[in-house]
Computed example of a mutant assay.
Amino acid sequence: MKTYGVTVTRHGYLYETEPAYVTDQPKFLNSAIRGTTKLNPHDLLAVLKRIEAELGCTSGIRYGPRPIDLDILFYGGESSIGNEGIKRVLPLGDQLVDWSKKTHVMGILNLTPDSFSDGGKFLEARDAVSHFRSLISKGADKVDIGAQSTRPFSERLTVDQELDRLIPVLDEIINIPESKGIILSVDTFYADVAAEAVSRGVHVVNDVSSGTLDPQILDVVASLGVPFITMHMRGDPSTMQNCENLHYGDVCKEVASELYQRVSAAELAGIPLWRIVADPD
Rank of each mutant, 00 (worst) to 15 (best):
residue 190 Y to P: 11
residue 190 Y to V: 12
residue 192 D to I: 06
residue 193 V to W: 07
residue 196 E to Y: 04
residue 196 E to P: 03
residue 197 A to D: 10
residue 197 A to R: 04
residue 197 A to H: 06
residue 198 V to R: 02
residue 198 V to N: 06
residue 199 S to R: 15
residue 202 V to P: 04
residue 203 H to F: 07
residue 204 V to G: 07
residue 205 V to G: 08
residue 205 V to A: 07
residue 206 N to V: 12
residue 206 N to D: 09
residue 207 D to Q: 11
residue 207 D to C: 03
residue 207 D to I: 14
residue 207 D to W: 14
residue 208 V to W: 02
residue 209 S to Q: 05
residue 209 S to L: 01
residue 210 S to K: 02
residue 210 S to F: 06
residue 212 T to W: 00
residue 212 T to K: 13
residue 212 T to I: 02
residue 213 L to S: 05
residue 213 L to M: 15
residue 214 D to Q: 14
residue 214 D to I: 13
residue 214 D to E: 13
residue 216 Q to D: 15
residue 218 L to M: 12
residue 219 D to W: 05
residue 220 V to W: 01
residue 220 V to I: 10
residue 220 V to Q: 08
residue 220 V to N: 02
residue 221 V to I: 14
residue 221 V to M: 02
residue 223 S to R: 15
residue 225 G to H: 08
residue 225 G to V: 10
residue 225 G to S: 01
residue 226 V to H: 11
residue 226 V to K: 12
residue 226 V to R: 10
residue 226 V to L: 05
residue 228 F to P: 07
residue 228 F to I: 12
residue 229 I to L: 08
residue 229 I to S: 00
residue 233 M to V: 06
residue 234 R to P: 02
residue 236 D to G: 00
residue 238 S to L: 05
residue 238 S to P: 00
residue 238 S to N: 08
residue 239 T to E: 04
residue 241 Q to N: 06
residue 243 C to Y: 12
